[in-house]
């Protein structure tokens, strides 16, 4: 098929699809979500978990398994990317150094990003934010210096340890419920006083684990992809 003809046909099909989707969405009552489950959760989340951020309660308690899966997906993706790209970052690198502004700003930003990320992680059960958002910021904190100093070797060792233990902690907290004869991921340690930093039982712990895991994995992923574009950094893998 010629490129133009394909584009034209695709456009026609897309218009058709669009019209059908619009028809479907029209039939949905916007703003009147059925909330079969959502209503119940909104009503009892505080008693169940002690988290004031109900989204966090859903994420870590009601749908904690999804979150574990989500962490696992990042881990799978990182492992698979590692497998595909080979052990990057070991070789003596010689990338082009970044400009002064980036280097200065990176040094300046690093502690702030670190603090911000940590804050967002540990307050995830109280305010908007949480392990993923905070973890992403933490990853950025470590990635910005790398941008500033492309030649600096990445130490995957520490990241691996953090990654491994953070992930394991999540599963172990979940399995702790089984030991007590309950279900997987049962909330532990009591709900506490709503609004306090040390409340919501094991939720902050889970968020911490997620934050560290996501942070280290994203940082590792970005470092690998960045290194992959640079043949000198591919650790002997051609």
């Amino acid at each position: 098929m010629k490129g133009n003809a394909r584009a034209f046909a695709s456009a026609l099909f897309l218009i058709g699809l669009g019209l059908m989707l619009v028809t479907l969405f029209e039939a949905l009552p916007f703003g009147g979500a059925p909330m079969q489950v959502g209503q119940a959760i909104a009503g009892r989340a505080l008693e169940d978990t002690g988290a004031t951020n109900i989204v966090s309660a859903v994420l870590l308690a009601y749908r904690g398994l999804d979150t574990l899966g989500e962490v696992a997906i990042l881990f799978v993706a990182a492992t698979a990317a590692g497998l595909v790209l080979g052990g990057a970052g070991r070789a003596e690198a010689q990338g082009t150094p970044a400009g002064f502004i980036l280097r200065a700003a990176a040094a300046l930003l690093f502690p702030f990003l670190l603090v911000l990320g940590a804050y967002i992680v540990i307050h995830g059960h109280l305010t908007p934010g949480g392990g993923f958002q905070g973890g992403a910021i933490l990853a950025a904190a470590f990635f910005v210096p790398l941008l500033a100093h492309p030649a600096s070797p990445v130490n995957h060792g520490v990241a691996t340890v953090v990654e491994a233990f953070a992930g394991a902690v999540f599963v172990v907290i979940g399995l702790a419920g089984l030991v007590g004869g309950g279900a997987f991921l049962v909330p532990l340690l009591g709900a506490g006083t709503p609004g306090d930093l040390f409340s919501a039982g094991s939720l902050p712990l889970l968020y911490l684990a997620i934050g560290l895991k996501v942070g280290s994995e994203l940082a590792g992923l970005m470092a690998r992809i960045a290194a992959a574009g640079d043949p000198a950094r591919q650790g002997g893998k051609a």
């Binding site: 046909a9 099909f13 699809l17």
Partner: peptide, 11 residues
């Protein structure tokens, strides 16, 4: 493209 076509027809 095939997937799109089948999706459109299916919908």
């Amino acid at each position: 493209l095939y997937v799109l076509i089948v999706a459109v027809l299916g919908l």
